[in-house]
Structure formats: structure tokens, C-alpha cells
């Protein structure tokens, strides 16, 4: 079963479409990197999946159930702003969330907080560092024992050690419970080591969606003479050109013609290629 599917999902804020015509399906058990530049629509998409805001068009489904104005019981959501009651202590906050949930494991929260250095249960939430608050918020999300974990910029304000701890906790969750995880970041480097599925969005639209290995295997970077570009067959995604040489990112490329070197792209260059193409489309649209 798919844990999260989107069908023609769009979200309009006044005149601007934050998300437009998004369609994808995330199989259960995947660890998904939701990447895209700032303002691409990542947060909007996650908030809609969490039932916090309603799509203007289309529909999101979680484990086959349409999301309608409230969070699915099997979903936990980490909001980008880490909304927590600052005047409560960590212990009180845990108790508060326990009271607001039918299915809850305070033990799980304690276990997660125990793995993280330096979160004092008696400290006021407001006195914690940004990273500390993120760790508390993640622990609270895991306390819901979710099957789908939606994390908006989970690593954004963490130092390297806390980042490693946090990833370890999330990955242990995946190993133990087979949880599907969708993590957003505007930095691909944060995520590409731990994710096996990529959802690249830009301008509110899905640019790439699929298993990372499969996506990479479908693409080729071809380097060859600028004059010979017409001999290359495949769907051109983007290209950089010098006077003599062309570097092309292609999808479903045919075997490279003579004089061209063909390699499988790494994720970084694939994403860059798609974002560059998207920016060029935007620029040319503006110039018209």
C-alpha cells in the first residue's frame, strides 16, 4: 500500500499557487527526501498531508484515506516552526501531548529523549536551544507511534552531533517499526545519505519522484563536442555549454554516440540539473 498519495494537488494563497498539480505516490516503508529550493512548496505540501490546511484542488490520501481537515491517526508531523508551549517544562509538555492522543507511548518519548544528550526533563521548553526544541518536537512526534512521519526541515537548526543523533533516532524508528518517513530540506546534502526515495519539487510542481537508485539509473550525463549535440538521443533535461563542449543531463538516453562520454549522474548533479531547467523555464516565461 502507498503511505501517501497526491492526486492533482494544488494550493493557492490569494493569487499565488504555492503548490500546483502535484501528483505522486510514496510506497510504505520508504525514507523520502522532499527537496527543493526555499519557497518551492515543501512546507505547504507537508501541512496539507498533516491535515493542517486543505488543498485548493485535488486530494491527498494517507494509507488510502483522504485527508480531510484533520491529521490521520497514523501520521505524526514535525512543523518547521517547532510549535511548543514555551512556558511548560519538557515533562509537562510530554504529559500534555499524552493527554491529547488516543494512541501514545510516553516510554517511546523518554527513550528518544534519553538518546539525546542534554535535554533536561525539568527544563522549561522555552529555555532550550533551537536544536533542543527540535529534538523534543521529534520525540513528541514519535510518541504518537506513527506509520508515516512527516518532518519539515528536521535538521535545519541542529549542530553536527545533534544532526547525527537525530538521524540515528529516525533511522532506528524506520528499522524498528518500518515507519515511512518524509523529510524535507532545502539542502540535499542533509538527506541524500539516508533517503531511498526522492521527491524534488520546484515552483510548486513535482520535478522528480522515485526510488533514488532507479531515478539515477534512468538518467545519464553525456559530455561531448558542442557541434555534435544533434546526434544525442533522449529527453534533454538541462545542458551546460562551452564553446567546444556540451554537458547534457538526459532522461532515458540512448547509448552515447561516438565521441561522447556517458556516466550515471550522482544525485547532487541530477537535482542541480532539474533545478537549473526549472529556473530557465521560469526566466523565459518572465521574459515573454
Amino acid at each position: 500500500m502507498n503511505s501517501l498519495t497526491a492526486t492533482a494537488v494544488g494550493k493557492r494563497y490569494r493569487a499565488r499557487w504555492a503548490v500546483r498539480d502535484c501528483g505522486f505516490a510514496i510506497p510504505e516503508g520508504k525514507v523520502v527526501a522532499l527537496v527543493g529550493p526555499n519557497g518551492a512548496g515543501k512546507s505547504t505540501l507537508l501541512r496539507m498531508a498533516a491535515g493542517l490546511s486543505r488543498p485548493t484542488t485535488g486530494e491527498l490520501k494517507v494509507f488510502g484515506t483522504p485527508v480531510q481537515g484533520r491529521i490521520h491517526p497514523d501520521v505524526a508531523f514535525l512543523a518547521q516552526e517547532r510549535p511548543l508551549y514555551h512556558d511548560l517544562t519538557v515533562r509537562e509538555l510530554v504529559r500534555l501531548c499524552a493527554a491529547m492522543n488516543d494512541r501514545w507511548s510516553t516510554e517511546r518519548v523518554r527513550e528518544v529523549l534519553g538518546l539525546q544528550a542534554g535535554v533536561d526533563h525539568n527544563a522549561k521548553v522555552g529555555s532550550l536551544s533551537g536544536g533542543g526544541r527540535t529534538q523534543v518536537a521529534i520525540a513528541l512526534a514519535l510518541g504518537r507511534l506513527p506509520r508515516l512521519l512527516l518532518l519539515d526541515e528536521p535538521l535545519a537548526d541542529l549542530d553536527p552531533l545533534a544532526r547525527d543523533e537525530t538521524l540515528r533516532i529516525i533511522m532506528t524508528e524506520v528499522a524498528d517499526r518500518g515507519t515511512t518517513v518524509v523529510m524535507s530540506s532545502h539542502l540535499l546534502s542533509d538527506l541524500h545519505e539516508v533517503c531511498d526515495h526522492i521527491l524534488l519539487i520546484d515552483e510548486g510542481r513535482v520535478q522528480v519522484d522515485g526510488d533514488i537508485q532507479e531515478v539515477l539509473a534512468r538518467h545519464r550525463i553525456l559530455v561531448g563536442p558542442a557541434a555534435g549535440e544533434s546526434t544525442v538521443e533522449g529527453t534533454l533535461i538541462s545542458a551546460t555549454r562551452t564553446e567546444r563542449q556540451s554537458t547534457l543531463l538526459l532522461r532515458e538516453a540512448e547509448p552515447a554516440p561516438r565521441g561522447w562520454a556517458s556516466t550515471e549522474p550522482d544525485l547532487e548533479s541530477l537535482v542541480m540539473g532539474y533545478l537549473r531547467a526549472s529556473r530557465e523555464r521560469r526566466n523565459s516565461a518572465q521574459h515573454k
Binding site: V31, R168, M171, V174, A175, D176, V194, D196
Partner: peptide, 19 residues
Amino acid sequence: PSAREVVEATAINPNTVLK
């Protein structure tokens, strides 16, 4: 080593280990 053991030690995706 089990996926969980690997994950605890290296913070990588357990699906990758299983794969």
C-alpha cells in the same frame, strides 16, 4: 549485523542495509 545495529552505529537508512 542487523539493520538496527548498523543504523545505531552509522545513522544510515536501514532500507539500504536490507537492500
